[in-house]
Amino acid sequence: MSTHRVAFTLNGDRRELEIAADRLLIDVIRDDCGATGTKLGCGVGVCGACSVLVDGELLSACLLPAVFADGRRITTVEGLANDELTPLQDAFIREGGFQCGICTPGQLIAATALLAEQPRPDAEAIRSWMMGNLCRCTGYYGIVRAIQRAAGPA
């Protein structure tokens, strides 16, 4: 097994690691970098719990070879808030956008990517984009409301 020197930023902090070729980004983020906000759900790219931003693009960390992160900018849920919550995080609290919380880091990352691309999505655009982030608690109503609240009127 080959190993590789990879350098990337995780939520603005530079990381340089020697990793084996078969490592996946989800494991490197959680186990090597200690950023456990990103959750492993299905492990096959379906549920969205491991959603991360790579150079601003929404990806499944459970499907991404960690060597692909070399030279790139990774954002996880830990990187969203500075001193204050983002409007989206605040809206998830106010609108009941979560219950058990396991899917929430992925929901927030996916919604952040949506609003970066479409600042004023209508409800249909929100449902279509967020379709890949599963939630067993909310029935999705709170999540859609939260994103609408953060975005302002469509």
Binding site: G45, V46, G48, S51, E57, L58, L59, S60, L63, L64, A110, A113, W129, M131, G132
Partner: peptide, 9 residues
């Protein structure tokens, strides 16, 4: 195809 995450990769 699938979801935006898959289509990005």
């Amino acid at each position: 195809v699938a979801t935006v995450r898959i289509r990005n990769q």
